[in-house]
Amino acid sequence: MTATFEARPAPPYPSSRNILAGKSVLVTASAGSGIGFATARRCAEEGANVMLSDIHAERLERFADELAASLGRPVLRAVCDVRSQQDVTRLIERAEAELDGLDVLVNNAGLGMTRDLLDTSSEDWLRLIDVNLSGPFRTIRAALPAMQARGSGSIINLSSICAWRAEAGQTAYAASKAGLLALTPCAAVEAAEFGVRINAVVPSLAIHPHLQRVSSPEFLERMIIENEVLGRAAETWEIGNAVVFLASDYASYMTGEALSVSCRRA
């Protein structure tokens, strides 16, 4: 196989602080207590100009204001339902315009569901696929042309350890997240020659208030004992750090990969 394009040189050496200085980052579903907001916060702390996005308008205002207050500078925000092509198109247009070019897209929007296969309706199945798999498909399709035209960009898809590890009740969720892991390298193959890197982050268990609301303490304890060799769940910002790495020029030679932020693959 021979490359049919002129290879790009490695980027200049990044400074050790403000790793994302000069970059713009859009994180979907980032108004909440989970990985999305923690990721947006870490990116902003590393100097990125960040746009938060979420389906819930009121919550979006609240979290964007909170981040703005802690940073001491304004934070951009845009409501978006990733199930709607129209919403996604408008979101990327706004990100391109308001961030003066979108450098990093973080596909974080996702729905969880624990339901046995025989109890899963077609509507359940389609709802999860629509958000978890079709959502990133829509945002990537919308964001890629401008990134490719500029010759740079990084897209990060949040998958899940469920894509690799079989668990009862996770059929629809696992399939949607495994689909995202298949989409990632295929998209990376097409985008590589235009200087755009596309990778996935695969968290196992990150504890946040929403998860604690929908799961029993016994369940979470069992998950930690059975699956986490570090003996604890991840902090949401530890997943955010992995996203910062992939978004930064530190990962300039990584594309099409799945970065597992967990203790075990299966």
Binding site: P185, A192, V229, E235, E238, M254, E257, C263, R265
Partner: peptide, 20 residues
Amino acid sequence: SDAASFMTGQTLIVDGGLLA
């Protein structure tokens, strides 16, 4: 570094997509 504080037992592949 501490940025990988929740990663252990993993293999990070940095290959320009060679194995993708």
